[in-house]
Amino acid sequence: MIKAVIFDLGAVLIDWKPEYLYQKIYPDESEMREFLRSICTSEWNEEQDAGRSLKEGTDLLLARYPEKKTAIRAFYDRWEEMLGGPIPGTVKILEELKASGKFRLYALTNWSAETFPVAERTYDFLGWFDGIVVSGVEKMRKPAPEFYRLLLDRFSLEAGDVLFIDDNARNTHAAEQLGIRSIHFTDARLLRSELEEMKIL
């Protein structure tokens, strides 16, 4: 029996894409894609999500690619421009779960400790959660098993009693290895259908 629902945030409840910013910097799409593929990569960003400071991460790239200084600095100087807003259908699901009072609600997110306060100020629905565990604060991130266990232990949850929702199959697979039932999120309509089938909505 599901007693708690754990949400990922980015690309599930919050639309965050570096492309929103970098299409302004690189009008040529192929040039933008190459920059994000080879310089400000998702792997590089994940190190900040795991606790490395924004300054250290930025300085590392500046030393390697000084000719890209403006574009590299923009990643965090203009980070808010990567926010596309809430994902309405999923936020509505969260709202309905909160209103039902049947489940405890948590978030487990890979997010820099330095940028997460911006999201908290921007999105009121983050206040609906009973607890949020942020990778940059804890200095560990999904899909590390200890990150999931940290949330379970902190909020006195059993793996078999929770449902985890994440847009990254790597992360849902890791959760399932720990006995956590998971949904690989692709869009809000399908999520609603799956939750209705599970009698959660």
Rank of each mutant, 00 (worst) to 15 (best):
K3E: 09
A4I: 05
V5A: 03
I6S: 00
I6T: 00
I6F: 00
I6P: 00
F7K: 09
A11C: 13
A11I: 13
V12Q: 06
V12C: 11
Y20M: 13
Y20H: 10
Y20W: 15
Q23V: 15
Q23H: 14
Y26G: 06
Y26W: 14
D28K: 13
D28A: 02
S30A: 14
R33L: 15
F35A: 08
C40S: 01
T41Y: 12
W44P: 13
W44M: 15
W44N: 09
E47D: 03
A50G: 12
A50T: 11
A50D: 13
G51H: 04
G51A: 04
L54V: 12
E56W: 09
E56C: 07
E56Q: 07
G57I: 11
G57K: 12
T58C: 05
D59R: 08
L61P: 13
L62H: 06
A63F: 14
R64D: 14
R64H: 09
R64T: 10
E67I: 08
E67G: 04
T70A: 09
T70C: 14
A71K: 11
A71R: 15
R73T: 11
R73N: 08
Y76R: 06
Y76D: 10
W79V: 14
W79R: 15
E80W: 09
G85M: 07
P86M: 06
P86H: 00
I87P: 12
I87D: 02
P88V: 02
G89W: 05
T90M: 10
L94M: 11
L94H: 10
K98Y: 12
A99V: 14
L105D: 01
N110L: 10
N110Y: 02
T115Q: 09
F116C: 13
F116Q: 15
Y123W: 04
F125A: 02
W128R: 13
F129N: 02
F129T: 01
D130N: 00
G131F: 00
I132P: 01
V133M: 07
V134S: 01
V134R: 04
M140H: 09
R141P: 08
R141F: 07
R141I: 08
K142M: 03
P143G: 03
F147H: 04
R149F: 06
S156D: 03
A159D: 05
G160W: 10
D161F: 09
V162T: 05
D166P: 02
D167Q: 07
N168C: 14
A175C: 09
A175H: 02
E176R: 02
E176W: 04
L178A: 00
G179S: 03
G179T: 03
I180E: 10
I180S: 03
R181F: 07
S182M: 03
H184E: 10
F185G: 08
D187Y: 05
D187K: 07
D187Q: 08
R189N: 12
L191Y: 05
R192A: 07
S193F: 14
K199Y: 04
I200E: 10
I200N: 04
